[in-house]
Amino acid sequence: MRKGPSAFNIASVVVGLAFLYAPIVILVVYSFNASRLVTVWGGFSTRWYVALFQDAQMLDAIWVTLRVGALSATLATVVAAFAAVALVRAGRFRGRTVLAGGIYATLVMPEVILGLSLLLLFVSVGLPRGFWTVTLSHATLTLAYATVVIQARLASFDRSLEEAAQDLGCPPWKAFALVTLPGIAPAVAAAWMLAFTLSLDDLVIASFASGPGATTLPMRLYSQVRLGVDPKINAVSTLLIGLVATGVIAAYLAQQHQRRRGAR
């Protein structure tokens, strides 16, 4: 039997979580501060949210970011599903090491290097920089994360169901689509969500790959942050944190629910 946590164990977890969450909590609290100053609490106010929704440039950037995120996440998830099938199902085919290596390399590659190399690609083929170049770049950035998520689920998925379908005369691709795909759907959804949030978040690669008319939210935030602390940034950050936290917690609960149903 596992012994319970000691006082030291509890203290390290509590302090660790406090360290992770304190800056985020402070950021959210001060988005409702009536005063412009960070250190002075001027009472509760939603004026920065009002100001945010009157800032056309910011709203435009949010819209661009959401479109880039949705499209690049979809691209990445599709390619990642193929990669996961090859890595999990194909055994030791030639090139497996190269494929796995390439995928893990994008996972740890510093973003500046990835951004610079993608920009050079777009320049060399003469693709004008803008919405599409950012989307393709973000799909490349998030591909590895999506693959890892789908691969993990596919590896633990019971294959005999799909084989049973095939024994009953179902063509392999159809058996995969009708049996396995619904089974791994939560992981595919999780992979999409992860790719989407990573795309929403990325500054470095977007800055390299983007052009006029495709300024994403992180790019706009970055140029504002460099000018100093602005409560409007806190407001937009709070909205973003709320959006992502809701999505992640919902996905987590859905997964728990499914697991409990599966256990029964």
Binding site: V78, V79, A80, F82, A83, V85, A86, L87, R89, A90, G91, F93, G95, R96, V98, L99, G102, I103, A105, T106, L114, S117, L118, L120, L121, L136, S137, A139, T140, L143, T147, P172
Partner: peptide, 22 residues
């Protein structure tokens, strides 16, 4: 298994174009 390996073509192409060539 061999047929599953065909699934590697798309991710291979993607990595070649957007990762290795750059």
């Amino acid at each position: 298994r061999e047929r599953s390996a065909l699934a590697a073509i798309l991710p291979f192409l993607w990595l070649a174009i957007f990762f290795a060539f750059p």
